[in-house]
């Protein structure tokens, strides 16, 4: 059983859904989560759809931990933790959460072409927050891009978010970071480490 009473989670299979936009490191983050699950001795499945994502589309990855995991896809309404690397994508997938599920949101927007061309409006922060609150109040916002930029590499907001998740689940940071370290280029190890721990302390602030 996975029990996180403070997050309202008590389940035999822990379902993570990671969503973002091509180029945000969503896939790397889901690889880390899947490897972590395996390292902790769980059965693991990680499913993603490649293909058109490189061309500015949404990226979706399902990661499941459990004693025996069957379906690679998480059923609608069964997501325990939604990790959104972009705000609009958070809104697009929030209905996948189980009631009162947890959502970790990178407070960042990437304008889709349908908005830049003037055909659609990017919803305001208040609209997004309100809509998310219809589903859950367990929403955790982290400005991963700002933190990553301050550290000097705006590409590693995904690692900040992983840090936040680690903090939220009250996990051992070193065992998490060891795995991340294997997936990032050696020369950027220190800055990734800083990003990861910064993510942890951001969540501590929110609590």
């Amino acid at each position: 059983m996975f029990s996180f009473p403070n997050l309202g989670i008590n389940t035999p299979i822990l379902n993570f859904l990671l969503v973002g936009v091509g180029g945000q490191g969503t896939i790397l983050a889901s690889n880390v989560l899947a490897e972590l699950g395996l390292a902790f001795g769980h059965d693991v499945k990680k499913a993603e759809v490649h293909g058109m994502s490189q061309r500015g589309g949404s990226v979706i990855s399902h990661v499941r931990w459990g004693e025996e995991v069957h379906s690679p896809i998480i059923a609608k309404g069964d997501v325990d933790i939604l990790i959104a690397f972009e705000k609009l994508e958070a809104l697009r997938f929030v209905d996948q959460l189980r009631p009162y599920g947890v959502i970790v949101i990178n407070d960042h927007n990437i304008t889709p072409v349908t908005v830049s061309s003037g055909n659609f409006i990017y919803p305001s922060d208040e609209t997004i927050k309100e809509a998310i609150h219809e589903f859950t109040r367990r929403d955790y916002w982290v400005n991963g891009v700002k933190i990553a930029e301050e550290l000097g590499n705006n590409k590693i907001s995904n690692v900040v978010i992983l840090g936040a998740l680690c903090g939220l689940l009250n996990q051992d940071p070193e065992s998490w970071f060891n795995l991340i370290a294997k997936k990032v280029p050696g020369k950027s190890l220190n800055i990734n480490r800083a990003a990861f721990f910064q993510g942890i302390s951001e969540i501590a602030k929110e609590h």
Binding site: L88, L91, P112, V113, T114, T127, I128, A131
Partner: peptide
């Protein structure tokens, strides 16, 4: 979600 979501084609 009750908001019009801009697609990301």
């Amino acid at each position: 979600v009750d908001v019009q979501l801009p697609p990301r084609p």
